[in-house]
Amino acid sequence: MNLVIVDYKAGNVQSVLFALERLGVQATLSCEAEVIKGADKVIFPGVGEASSAMAQLRARNLDKLLPSLEQPFFGVCLGMQLLCQHSEENNTDTLGIIPEKVLRFKTDLKVPHMGWNQLHHLQTPLFEGLQEQEYAYFVHSYYVPLGEHTIAQASYPEPFSAALQYKNFYAAQFHPEKSGPAGSRILQNFLAL
């Protein structure tokens, strides 16, 4: 399988690469349009801040390319938020692929929401073989509210979208590459889509 990780200098790509390696899959890191277009599957990681990540994408013309992709696509953490229309983080217009908006947590609880939290209302083959209430590792200060594209929920304290799906675009707010055996299973499920 030709698996490409989008490398746009705004993500902990190494962790994703290693997680796939543990599954016996060698992925290619690339920011080149031809390489990404030719992939069987694409993973889009991201940590950091939304507006600078968007600037990195624009600098490589990836803001035009990514929405046009038709193969299975998996956005992780900031990679999920960038797939949405708009983020409250520095009032940033994002890729606009998934018709959802990204909001800042407004809670008395600690922000960032950091640590292991449970997934519930699991839908789609992405969560094949996982139990309700399975734990995943989260670290984020912005979130996507529940909506028609939500395929998994977590609560902090209110329920929010732990994962989204829109057409061929899948996305997780948590880090499957850092979520132990459950996270590996989710990556494996994506590879099997």
């Binding site: 190494q14 962790s15 290693f18 880090h175 590459e177 850092k178 979520s179 132990g180 996270g183 590996s184």
Partner: peptide, 11 residues
């Protein structure tokens, strides 16, 4: 650090 990241799947 690289070696650790390669082998463990928690943060």
């Amino acid at each position: 650090v690289r070696d650790i990241a390669r082998h463990i799947d928690i943060p």
